[in-house]
Design a protein around this nucleic acid. Structure first.
Lengths: 221, 221
DNA sequence: TTCTACATTTTTGAATGCAAAATGATCGAT
DNA sequence: ATCGATCATTTTGCATTCAAAAATGTAGAA
């Protein structure tokens, strides 16, 4: 198994929440599961630590990173900036075919919204945002975006939505597609920022905070 | 020696250009120099590869990353976005003391400009930009900024400047400080973007391209 | 009983050793 | 002489091993 594959598989395990935030990462177990020895596993963990998905404690092993409210706010803030930038660049560079693809994803997403299928809705949602980033034609940007969204993914695509909020989100997406089709970079950037700001409020209000200190504050009987 | 220290030292070696872009990274030599074995060295190289400073070729070792013109353009583009975001956030959050510190760095920089001391000028320049990013109060943003600037640092702080261009840059910095003092986030974002756009043109025009293919295209006698 | 000091076990972090792959060197053929 | 093939050497990637640090468990004293 190639190095990048090891990193990818552990990343998937973390993103799936199979190892919950704050939990110790069982080296031995992962070694058996991936059929590799500790050396390549530890290399992967160091890389994931650099990405912010894993927290290394010297002589105390590694844990799945736990995000505080502040972390989440910071990540959303940066994500807003990156998406806004991507939107502006995409409007300058996007090809008609790419717009068509995003429009298709949008239609899909709206259909899933009508069917109230949250999982599929989120899938389409993600395809749109990633499509815009891809259309920006900037691999560096795409890389940072991937790294930031990976860290907030659980929050972003797991938070439940009120019917009102969901309707607003769909409306915002209409505006996003519209701005993209008009290649209105500045407008798109603004809409994306607002869209993510709303999402952030939602997530934080839902009290996603992974810092319940459950293993720090002893439970009182 | 701690893991992070190893990463830091190798990063420094790369940023200093001691191992030039495209050159093979001599594992054995670095091991002796840092007095460590291959295991921690290789862990560090994988981390630096994730950061984009090192290029790993499976079964062919690692090389110091070589930036194409496109890479450089992409990096500057993202850097613009990050600094603009930092500027906006900084204007919302910066404390008077921080503004004072940046104003001091600005004064320093202007003095070095008058003395035509490019090295010291760049140092002050960097302090200002980093000060703004720090004032944004977003560690995630600061981290990405550090990673992106590390990759373009050699270009950014090595390119020679024409007297005209230098004067313009200083003027732009006056505007930057002014916007910051007025806490004009939108204005600051615009100035920073323009400032970096100019810098990028400069760097690219200087033909910084690290892709001269000097080891690919044989020299014809 | 509870707290502390000590011994044991486990786990971490790093060095070494080994197999596979790539590089290059030598030799033969054209 | 040049090109290609085969073999030796080097280098890479990983498994294993070893030492040190931390966690755990136990026994003894207050």
């Amino acid at each position: 198994m190639l190095h990048e594959e090891v990193v990818g598989r552990i990343r998937a395990i973390l993103l799936d929440g199979e190892i919950p935030p704050g939990a110790r990462i069982p080296e031995r177990e992962l070694c058996e599961r991936l059929q590799i020895s500790r050396t390549p596993l530890r290399e992967a963990l160091k890389v994931l630590a650099a990405e912010g998905l894993v927290q290394l404690l010297p002589h105390r092993g590694s844990r799945a990173a736990k995000l505080t409210d502040k972390d989440m706010r910071d990540l959303f803030e940066v994500c807003q900036g990156l998406e806004a930038l991507a939107g502006e660049l995409a409007c300058e560079r996007i090809m008609d075919a790419e717009i068509a693809a995003i429009a298709a994803a949008h239609a899909d997403m709206v259909r899933h919204y009508r069917e109230r299928d949250l999982i599929q809705y989120y899938r389409g949602n993600r395809a749109i945002h990633e499509g815009i980033v891809a259309a920006a034609g900037n691999p560096v940007l795409a890389g940072l975006y991937a790294s930031v969204t990976a860290r907030i993914r659980r929050a972003r695509y797991v938070t439940p939505m009120t019917p009102e909020r969901w309707a607003v989100a769909v409306k915002e997406h209409d505006a996003i597609l519209n701005a993209l089709q008009r290649r209105d970079g500045v407008g798109l950037a603004h809409i994306l920022r607002a869209h993510l700001r709303h999402k952030r409020e939602e997530v934080l209000q839902a009290g996603f905070a992974e810092t319940e200190g459950s293993d720090l504050v002893p439970r009182i009987a």
